[in-house]
Design a protein around this nucleic acid. Structure first.
Ligand SMILES: [Mn+2]
Ligand SMILES: [Mn+2]
Ligand SMILES: [Mn+2]
Ligand SMILES: [Mn+2]
Lengths: 227, 227
DNA sequence: TTTAATTATTAGGTTAACCTAATTTTATTA
DNA sequence: TAATAAAATTAGGTTAACCTAATAATTAAA
């Protein structure tokens, strides 16, 4: 039996491992992520190890086993399906959906998930451009890179964001930038890498390098020369 | 702070009190309802009393305070709104909705409830004919009585069911009886009170007295003589 | 009205999920 | 490399939510 707490641990390990593939996932990392203290995590890790959802040692940190990954990907699937449903069907903004999906992802009804996934047209990506795993846990792939890697003149399309905070998403909404929007890099400031971008708005907009690092795009012209 | 467990206790007390207004709600009643043991309930009741959600003594049993009733009615509201949403919007049957709503009722987002309540057209009753409390906890009223009280010749409309079990609801579905269906009582067997009913189906149907006691109806003709 | 049966309550125990403080291990830096 | 700082782990404690078994209080029967 898996409680929502257990689901959250497995999801946390999955997300931390995917966020930085080179770094091992320590108990402390998990503790920070879940906003609890390391001893609590150590205690739970021992249980998850015994249940064969996780392996743990100080060199490799926490790693999901096949069955642990299966559960984690299922929760990620539910989360992203709910986000998409809330966004498309119930008209929530892309900055609001995450918090509610954090709760809805733990509702246990495969039929419900199937139903709402049908209603939204079985999409491959959620409102933040994140891939929705299929029932077997396989992720649709898309090649995306940070907007900050664009060179001057690059024409590209926004396929996602790597930061999901409300403040960042609302900032993009204020700039009138959303998923699938086309951008043209008009200028890159040589001193601080601030971008001047043509968007769907009349006037070009300015964007900090910090923000550009969090926006994931794909070039629209092949061999456009971007890194 | 109220956990889903606390919400379930308060809802249980509300439902038990409403199921039989004359009987006091004992800790044992609550224990049966929640499928836990009486000492566990006693323990929790002490906490709910301290939080001023409940009063408890052996003569009056457990009784909700104003703030306890407020929470209970809010959960009932969420439950019935979700049931209606699942039924109308997501095409679940009236026998499936309860179980999923038991989980969804604990999702904490007023905006989500408001949104789905809008989508379903702000109805007053759920798929079982149960009244949906408004935000202030006020219940729309309807006068209904068991079909078993009908006299021969009575023409009435189904406004609800007092039993919510899947087996009973599926039985009604098999009989082709649903909410808002019109029924005419053609015959009442003098020995066992079995009813012969005209319904939307061509052939009249037979229904046991046991089932008729669980169906709530309203006469369509004034002063039709039913009890 | 005693006795027996039932029901309610208290006593005492377990597990999960959290914590702080102490200790041990590992990594830095002088 | 020895000292120091940082990180990981262990020790020990709390609270909530559950339990069973024992006791006390009611209710029903004889
Ligand atoms: Mn999210
Ligand atoms: Mn997302
Ligand atoms: Mn229900
Ligand atoms: Mn209902």
């Amino acid at each position: 039996m898996k409680t929502y707490r257990e689901e959250n641990y497995l999801k946390a390990i999955y997300q931390l491992a995917n966020h930085d593939k080179s770094k091992v996932v320590s108990a402390t990392d998990i503790a920070h992520w879940l906003e609890i203290k390391p001893p609590t995590v150590l205690e739970k890790l021992a249980i998850l190890v015994k249940k064969d959802y996780v392996t743990y040692n100080k060199f490799d940190g926490a790693q999901l086993t096949t069955s642990g990954k299966e559960i984690a990907l299922n929760i990620v699937r539910r989360h992203r399906i709910w986000e998409t449903y809330l966004y498309k069907q119930l008209k929530f903004s892309w900055s609001e959906v995450h918090e509610i999906a954090e709760q809805l992802e733990h509702v246990n009804s495969d039929k419900l998930i199937d139903r709402i996934y049908d209603v939204i047209g079985k999409p491959d990506f959620d409102p933040h451009g994140d891939p929705i795993p299929n029932k077997q846990g396989k992720l649709p792939k898309s090649d995306r890179r940070p907007l900050s890697q664009s060179i001057k003149g690059c024409k590209c399309v926004v396929l996602g964001v790597s930061e999901h905070s409300e403040v960042f998403l609302n900032y993009l909404t204020d700039l009138n930038i959303g998923l699938n929007d086309k951008l043209i890099v008009e200028q890159i400031n040589a001193y601080d890498d601030t971008l001047k971008l043509s968007t769907k708005t009349k006037e070009p907009i300015l964007m900090s390098s910090k923000a550009a690092q969090q926006i994931l795009v794909q070039c629209l012209k092949p061999n456009c020369g971007c890194r």
